[in-house]
């Protein structure tokens, strides 16, 4: 893994008085999907939030495409090309789908060709283009969050549990869209609890426990080793 798009070195993050990340070391290679896995509450969301800058790391370094961004402000990190899809989706429900997308294209107007590609991946967004995003169903909102991340060329996507709570049919739409993104050569750091999706999409995996990365390697290796899964995550993901 030479020259990763993102590298975390010994990241410690506090939330209020709680010490949540205890020295996260992580490399995210270019043009691949890296799964960030682990039980609930181990610090996956906190890791992504530290990368986008919603939490400031207390110690350690974050290198994005070779440049240190540890102390940079969130908007600057975003403008450097990091797209973020938060766990709670972060939809602007008072704004229409179109307005959400207009904002997502921060550096200029939304490219029509790109918009059409997004419509192809997520047809409901075309249907409800002029509707307030708050009136969308849960699955449609999740489509909109991914679509927002795709509104511009990004060098890295941070995506937090995009299939959480979705009906199986929509999970496969979502997985398809992520697969397309991957096929276009995007670099993605993806938190995903649905193991079937994780296995299908992931090239690499990093497993967290108690605020640290406890295992990192190829997804293939983790997917085929039930014992390893059991040991790392306290359960066999195959069973899910």
């Amino acid at each position: 893994m030479s020259d990763p798009i993102l590298r975390l070195e010994g990241i410690h993050t506090d939330i209020a008085q709680y010490h949540i990340l205890h020295g996260v070391d992580l490399e995210v290679p270019r043009g691949a999907v890296t799964m960030l896995l682990g039980r609930n509450g181990v610090g996956k969301t906190t890791t992504l939030r530290t990368v986008i800058g919603h939490w400031q790391a207390r110690a350690g370094r974050i290198l994005f495409d070779g440049a240190e961004i540890t102390g940079a402000k969130t908007p600057d990190r975003a403008r450097m090309g990091i797209g973020y899809v938060p766990e709670d989706m972060g939809i602007f429900s008072d704004l229409t789908v179109e307005e959400n997308m207009t904002l997502a294209a921060a550096t200029g107007p939304l490219d029509p060709a790109r918009r059409d590609r997004i419509f192809e991946a997520f047809p409901p967004l075309r249907t409800f283009w002029r509707s307030p995003a708050g009136t969308l169903s849960g699955g449609q909102k999740q489509m909109l969050t991914i679509a927002r991340a795709m509104a511009e060329e990004r060098r890295l996507y941070l995506i937090d549990e995009p299939t959480k709570g979705l009906a199986p049919a929509i999970v496969s739409t979502m997985a398809g869209a992520l697969r397309d993104l991957k096929r276009q050569g995007a670099s993605i750091l993806l938190v995903e609890q649905n193991f079937a999706v994780a296995k299908a999409l992931g090239d690499y995996a990093a497993v967290m426990d108690d605020g640290r990365i406890v295992w990192a390697g190829e997804m293939q290796e983790l997917a085929t080793d039930a014992g390893l899964q059991e040991r790392l995550m306290g359960l066999s993901m195959e069973a899910q």
Partner: peptide, 10 residues
């Protein structure tokens, strides 16, 4: 509605 997300968009 969500200032944090506005910042995350740049």
């Amino acid at each position: 509605e969500n200032g944090e997300m506005v910042e995350a968009l740049g």
